[in-house]
Amino acid sequence: MDLDPRQYENLAVNDNDIHNIVLSYLIHNCYKESVESFIACTGATQPADYLEDMDKRKRIFHFALEGNALKAIELTEQLAKDILENNKDLQFDLLSLHFVELVCSRKCTEALEFAQTKLGPFGKEPKYMEKLEDFMALLAYKEPEKSPMFHLLSLEYRQQVADSLNRAILAHLNLPSYTAMERLIQQATVVRQCLSQEAGKDAPPPFSLKDFLRS
């Protein structure tokens, strides 16, 4: 059972706000064509320089997602030189994506050489050491996809790195790293959970976003 609609149906929500929330989400995720269609349909205000930056971000994001990390690094440095210089974690993640690609292509000698020159210097810091060891362990397997470290080869891992890179670029462009949509959903979820706890025995079942979207 959900909350009684009478508790919230009289709250007025401005259409413009809704449009801005959706638009910021589309821009954040580089859905360029959808952005253009959305602006055309709703007459929403077009943010300045958004198209050019979004194009570059989209290319960077896709290169990272495909595992072409060197290209992603090159384009990122063209867009903003100091992003990676100031974010060693991101730099490490992108370089490790390239290492994984070399391993998957069975270019083990090349992968080892790359690891020694580019990833080796990170080994001085203990926080990278464990991750680095896991990446290096991939080299031992004839079929790294079947190794205990298989998650490092997954699309989910590349998605995670691509998302981090996208957020870093957005922050550099003085845009929010997280979309208003994400934040609103997070806040709504927390509020609903708190309400459930306060209501005690009489509370509706715990809030589930999936169930809410289905209803």
Binding site: Q116, L132, A137
Partner: peptide, 22 residues
């Protein structure tokens, strides 16, 4: 070393990490 990977999950990655400093 690879045949021992599954039996020594803690030790094995460390040994592979050594390759960085050959």
């Amino acid at each position: 070393l690879a045949p021992f990977a599954s039996l020594n999950k803690g030790e094995f990655p460390k040994l592979m990490g050594c390759l960085l400093y050959a």
